[in-house]
Design a binder for these strands. Structure first.
Lengths: 200, 200
DNA sequence: CCGCCAATGGACCGATCGTTCCATTCTCAT
DNA sequence: ATGAGAATGGAACGATCGGTCCATTGGCGG
């Protein structure tokens, strides 16, 4: 028996769903979740309200999907990288590049994720918060591993928050068509972080 | 003639205003701006709708006041510090401490500031965005000064965003009654940033 | 004790909220 | 050609939205 939690098939139904989620992400990012009406969304996707609900189930369901998808991908990637046995510095740089790539490609979704997760209720909220904490734990593991190997100074717990803040903040200002690529930015941040910005 | 843009006097009217703004900040931070109704706010402050509007003018006005107050304070402080002729390292540490102190003391307000400024319209939004950019420019000046003096490595423009991300992110997780004070956190972040976390 | 005006509660406004329901149309396997 | 079920648009639901209006109350200077 094969279980597919997310069909991702090529059916038009799935394609429509994906399209709707993308449009909703942009609207929620621009006008906030509570500030975006279902009527507005309906108009933007070019479907009547009835047809729209045929796909989305509920408005909160849409928010949940937007919020969850990207962080799940980042968790999967972080697990792969942690298991790959990379040198600590490479591991950190790859983690950062993965995250910045994803943020650059899905700025709307990350804006919604960071700003609107409080609008989720019950289990939806719990799951998103848990996924977020899980991702943070992967960074902590990477830093701890570096410290154990003597490559990094034993870092205070709080530094993880600082690094993630540094990286996450890019959702707000990064210009995908700008001069700096996500990779270059990740390396620049890690150069500063690993060796400091003091002139030597 | 004396012009007081913000009376701040001891009149009960002003005291009520301040109280209402504070309660609104908490509600907006918890349930988002668009997710908080005027009815809910009215109930929370213990006033009827009519009495409430006697103080606030409009809901957006409330949002503007919450968003603007803190960033204005930080700009004023940054200007003072930049003019004080401090050594670069001290200047950076003081800037960071000032910001983290303010965030720690006004977490609700900063949450609203970061999450909800897009809900502002017209001039209100322009002014808040401008204030935010002004604050960023002060950090850039501090870093540039350090580079000109040869104290800091010539830093890429983008690092300013990284540092601010690192600091701003604290609004989300900082525990005012926790073990770490804003000062300690600021110093820890600047230790890492100035000299790096690589073991030497 | 009077008179003025700030302060107040709540009815009321039209608009919009998220969601449900249903009759109709479309698609495609038989 | 026919039947089944997916897809669709739009009316309708009660609730709530932000804001206005107004009659009443409260406190204080004269």
């Amino acid at each position: 028996m094969i279980i597919e939690s997310e069909p991702m098939g090529s059916t038009t139904y799935d394609l429509n769903r994906v399209r709707i989620v993308g449009i909703a992400a942009e609207l929620f990012a621009r006008n906030s979740y509570h500030g975006t009406g279902v009527a507005e969304l309906s108009k933007a996707v070019g479907l009547g309200r009835g047809a729209l609900y045929h796909y989305i189930g509920s408005k909160e369901n849409l928010l949940y999907e937007i919020s969850k998808t990207q962080v799940d991908q980042m968790n999967a990637q972080a697990e792969r990288l942690l298991a790959a046995g990379l040198p600590t510095e490479t591991l950190l740089r790859e983690l950062a590049k993965g995250l910045l790539h994803n943020i650059a490609e899905h700025q709307f979704e990350w804006a919604v994720f960071f700003r609107e997760y409080t609008a989720l209720t019950g289990e939806n909220r719990d799951r998103v918060v848990a996924a977020r904490e899980r991702y943070e734990s992967y960074w902590r593991q990477a830093l701890d591993r570096g410290a154990a190997e003597g490559v990094l100074a034993p870092a205070p717990r709080l530094l993880v928050k600082g690094i993630l803040g540094m990286l996450n903040y890019t959702y707000l200002w990064f210009e995908p068509d700008g001069e700096v690529s996500p990779d270059e930015l990740a390396d620049a941040y890690l150069d500063a972080l690993l060796d400091g910005i003091r002139q030597r």
